[in-house]
């Protein structure tokens, strides 16, 4: 049953991502991108990373894509969308590169003989936080435990990065002032 779900969600993710890339209409592409993100969240659920699945839907499919759609509407970016297939050299080159990468990926991972195929490890329901490493758990509690012990410094740096991004957005999107104006 979960195998069938894996194939369904992988198919949805890949096909909607491909439609996003080749769709001449940017708004349709953004909608397919949302479907692709939700499909990835479903794959996260199949991998029993429930917290990340929720985060994926909230942050990517929610906040990020709403921001994208807002900017697409604001800039009216799809008014000359019919020029996608005009440049034959770019088309041929990019499709050749895509085909090479797909062949490489398929040669590396199809067949199951190239990477070792580890069995699924048992998932701890309620971590105690003891032991050297942090074992894979399904509870969001282990995120909190890891973020405040092993990953304390990256966590603080990420918070600082968000602050810097916020200030940067305010500075970048301010109205362009006259260069002859007063110096700050």
């Amino acid at each position: 049953m979960t195998d069938l779900l894996f194939y369904i969600f992988a198919g949805i993710t890949l096909i909607s991502a491909l439609i996003m890339v080749i769709s001449p209409n940017v708004v349709n592409g953004a909608m397919c991108m949302i479907i692709s993100f939700v499909g990835t969240a479903a794959l996260f659920v199949l991998l029993e990373a429930y917290f990340l699945a929720v985060l994926q839907v909230l942050v990517y499919a929610g906040a990020v894509m709403v921001l994208f759609l807002f900017i697409i509407m604001l800039l009216d970016a799809d008014k000359d969308a019919s020029r996608l297939l005009k440049d034959k050299m770019t088309l041929a080159g990019s499709i050749a590169g895509f085909a090479l990468l797909v062949v490489l990926v398929c040669a590396a991972f199809v067949g199951g003989q190239h990477l070792p195929e580890p069995a699924l490890l048992p998932v701890m329901e309620n971590p105690t936080g003891e032991g050297p490493g942090i074992p894979f758990t399904t509870s969001a509690k282990s995120f909190g435990y890891s973020l405040f012990t092993k990953y304390m410094l990256p966590f603080q740096l990420t918070g600082f990065l968000l602050l810097a991004a916020m200030i940067g957005v305010i500075v970048v999107s301010k109205k362009h002032e006259e260069p002859t104006g007063e110096k700050k």
């Binding site: 979960t2 590169g97 195929e117 580890p118």
Partner: peptide, 24 residues
């Protein structure tokens, strides 16, 4: 479904993203 299947999907998704970056 093993690890290789998930990595295959991830690799194909990466390839599609690369196609978008160099095509569009």
């Amino acid at each position: 479904v093993g690890l290789n299947a998930f990595i295959l999907v991830a690799g194909l998704l990466f390839a599609i993203g690369l196609l978008g970056v160099i095509l569009r």
